[in-house]
Simulated scan of single mutants.
Amino acid sequence: MTLISAFQKDEDLLKDIKKYAPLTEGFRIWWLGQSGFLIQWKGKYLLFDPYLSDSLTIKYAATDKPHTRMSELVINPARLDMINVVTSSHNHTDHLDAETLGPLFAANPAIQFVIPEANRAFVCERLKCPETFPIGLNDGQSMEVAGFKLYGVPAAHNALERDAQGRCKYMGFVAEFGGYRVYHSGDTLWYDGMVEVLKPFAVDVAFLPINGNKPERRVAGNLSAEEAARLGVEIGAKLVIPHHYDLFTFNTEDPHEFEKYAKQYGTPYRILKIGEGQSLASRE
């Protein structure tokens, strides 16, 4: 099949990122595909949940659940040598990929890595990193990391699953920086109390999945396009950017479905193409 073309990739994407490095007002976002978002703020870079390899396509190629790629790979992670902080919201490979994170760590020796504390042993085994390396958070906790204050919030994928110590195995993160707040959902369904958890943050941008929850896919589900549009309004997000689509043919959604509901609910939104950036204006 013909892959969906990136808006920009490789050298062009790097040039765009570097072009905005001197930005001192507002902040900038790039969508790197699936649930991966890069944030640039005052010369610092926060990378949420990158998946920048074909590891899952290779792993499942000879199975009854092939992970057939739909879109171009936007960049080799080894070329992202400016990253200060990277997250993994949970242990699924499209959010915790050794073939993405290994090269990223090598390219950024001072990088800091934020995970759900409950997942520490699994993460370190998969990535072959020291157990002291990741920074672990639980819901209700926050920590300052390289100029970004990160708050842990629960995620339900499909349940609000906790370990024996009561720590969340699936999480989202709210990043606060320079008076802005951005919510990255990780993978999640809508759960009781979700609006009450998120609304007090008054987020400027919410990154929400739209691929839905279909048991026949035999993978854990997410918000539907309709739910993502409605949730954005209910938590008071100033902008919603959808994610978790256009990567694998068996587990995707048409972003125009999200657009339809966003218009119906009056949700402020922007649909990005892979590799495309979006600038958020200064509050001044």
Rank of each mutant, 00 (worst) to 15 (best):
E227P: 00
P109F: 14
K9T: 02
S35I: 04
A175V: 06
A107Q: 00
F7M: 09
I58E: 00
V85A: 05
V240S: 11
I39D: 07
G277Y: 11
R230Y: 13
N108V: 15
I271G: 01
L223D: 09
I17H: 13
K18H: 15
R69W: 11
K199Q: 11
Q278G: 02
L239K: 07
F201P: 11
Y269D: 09
I115G: 00
K59E: 15
P209I: 03
T68P: 12
A118F: 02
L56P: 12
L3M: 02
S35N: 13
G147V: 07
K65T: 09
S89H: 12
N91T: 12
E253F: 02
Y269Q: 09
V153Y: 05
Y269P: 10
T2A: 15
R126T: 15
G232I: 13
P130I: 03
S53L: 07
H243V: 12
T132W: 08
Y60A: 07
F173P: 00
H243T: 06
E161W: 06
N251C: 03
A146I: 06
K18L: 15
I135R: 07
C129H: 08
I4V: 15
L272H: 04
F177T: 03
W190G: 00
L80Y: 11
V240M: 12
F177H: 12
L46F: 11
G277K: 10
M1V: 08
P255H: 00
Y151L: 04
L52M: 10
D49K: 05
G136H: 12
L3A: 04
R181C: 02
A225Y: 06
G236E: 07
Y261E: 01
G36M: 08
T93I: 13
F173G: 02
E226W: 05
C124N: 14
H95A: 10
L272W: 05
G147Y: 10
T267D: 10
E161H: 05
K19A: 14
Y245H: 14
S5L: 15
C124A: 11
N222H: 08
G179K: 04
D254G: 01
F177Q: 07
S185C: 13
A6C: 15
A62W: 06
L46N: 06
G26S: 09
P103L: 03
I274P: 01
E196Q: 11
K199D: 06
V114C: 05
D54K: 10
V85T: 03
Y60S: 09
M1S: 12
E161V: 01
F113G: 00
R28D: 02
I17F: 07
D54T: 13
L239E: 09
Q112A: 13
P255I: 12
G221L: 03
K263V: 15
A262D: 00
S53Q: 08
M171Y: 02
S185F: 05
G277S: 15
L96H: 15
H243Y: 12
I75L: 10
R120A: 07
E125F: 13
A156V: 01
S279R: 14
A202L: 04
Y191D: 00
G26T: 05
E253Q: 14
P154M: 11
A6G: 12
L247A: 06
L101W: 13
Q34K: 12
T132I: 06
A6H: 08
H95D: 05
A155L: 03
D192N: 14
F27R: 08
W190L: 00
